[in-house]
Each structure stands twice: as structure tokens, then as C-alpha cells.
Amino acid sequence: MHNEDVVARWQHVAPRNTRSRILIVDDCSDDVRPALLAMSAREWHVSVANDARQGLRRARLLRPDLILLDVHMPHMDGFTFCRLLREDEVTRSIPVIFLTSAGALDERLEGLQLGGVDYIVKPYEPLEVLARMRVHLRLRQNSPAVRAEGDSASETDDEMVVRAAIKFLSQNLGALPSLPDIARTVGTHDKRLSRLFREHMGMTVFACVREMRLKKSQELLSDTDMSVQEIAERLGFSSAGNFTTTFRKQKGLTPTEFREQINGQ
């Protein structure tokens, strides 16, 4: 069977916890080619499914670390895929980034509401997609569930520093220490920390902080009753207006709209 072949290959070539596994679900392979090209530079294992059902089967078998998901596909659309994914214990916690040409507000809302960590509208900038993927992969590695799964023995020193820094940052989003202080906390100096982030995350430390703030804000908007103002303060945005602008720039809708949609359901 094709699927078993894939599993076998992955298990053979990529033992767990060393390389990130990415699943791309898109019916149009031309659309994802730029992203695939960009990813080829990374030591990632990438699997492409051209059909949602096939994608779902692979997700269950391979348990990828991240899924890039299209919305409009024949037979089953991306939203249904996402719902089914959330039903399964094994696949429930896999982060999903929507990568689609469906850019309407209600579609964005539905995607984010179904637990999509990000929503990128085509045409996209491959390197930007890559950068965002890395943030979410890192954040996932820091989550207790995934940490528990395996050891980090094979991790390089640099990776450890980045992971520690991200962990530290995620705990200090509200009142961020200065760059040298952050570097000192994870046992390095600021210049090196910037370089490590550039190498491993494809972005600056501050840009990474912004991504993390946005991810956290999405969680707070859907899981708590905190006002936009409170969330902005808690996550260290300079103001509620700044929070709204940043959120809207990336997600395509305002925090209030997002909150309303979540509550409306």
C-alpha cells in the first residue's frame, strides 16, 4: 500500500524528534510548488496529499508536526478536514496553517475558529510561509505534550538555545526584557541570539516575539473573556490599537471580529 510505503520510508529515514514532518494538503500541486522549493532547503520531511481524504489518512498514520491546508478541494473541503482532524485523539493537537486562495472574511473566521494557527492567503511569499511554519514548529516543540514524546538528545546546542529562548520569550511576552538580558538568560549574547534566530527561524527575535504574541492573543480571544485592551496589555503590545492593527494585518480581521465569531458559535 502506498500509505504504508510512506510510513515505512519516514520511519526508516527520519526517526522521531530529529526532523520535523510537514504534511501539505492541496489539490493543486502548482500552488504549493514555491513553498516546497523553499522547504527543500530545510531538513524537513514533506508529504503532499492532493486530496483531503488521502491527507486525513496520512495525518493519522504519520502524525505530522504541522499541516499546510488548502480550503477549496474536491470531495471534502479544508474546513471539514480540520474538523475531522480535531475529532481524532492522535491528530487533535497538530497545528494547522491554512494556505488558500479563499480570502473572504467568513472563510478566514471559520478557519481560525476551527483552530487554524494561521491563515495565509494565496498568492503567498514562500519565505514568509516558511518563517511562520518555523515559529509554530518551535512553539509546538515547547508544548508539554510533544516534549514528553521523546528525548532531545539529538538536538544541537544552537537548537537548544533557540528553543530555550522561545520558551523564555513565551513566558515573558508581557514585559519583555532587553535583547542582551534575554540572551544572557539562555546562556549566550545578543548578537548570537539574533543570528540563531535568523538561521533557525528565518526572522529577527522581535519578529518572532510578534508572531508569538499573535498566536497567544488568538488563544486568549477564544478561551477567555479578557477584553482586547487587557489582552494587548498582557501580551506587551504597545496599545490596543497597535494590537488590533497587527492582528488584522496578519489574520485579515480584527480581534473583535474574531471574538464575535467565536462567541457567535
Binding site: S178, L179, D190, K191, L193, S194, R195, F197, R198, M203, T204, V205, F206
Partner: peptide
Amino acid sequence: LFLGDLFAGYGFE
């Protein structure tokens, strides 16, 4: 800080 972060990331002092 942002500019410093950016250039440091690309290996500048």
C-alpha cells in the same frame, strides 16, 4: 533595536 536585531541576525557586528 530592531535594526540591530536584523543586522546581527545576518552576521554583522
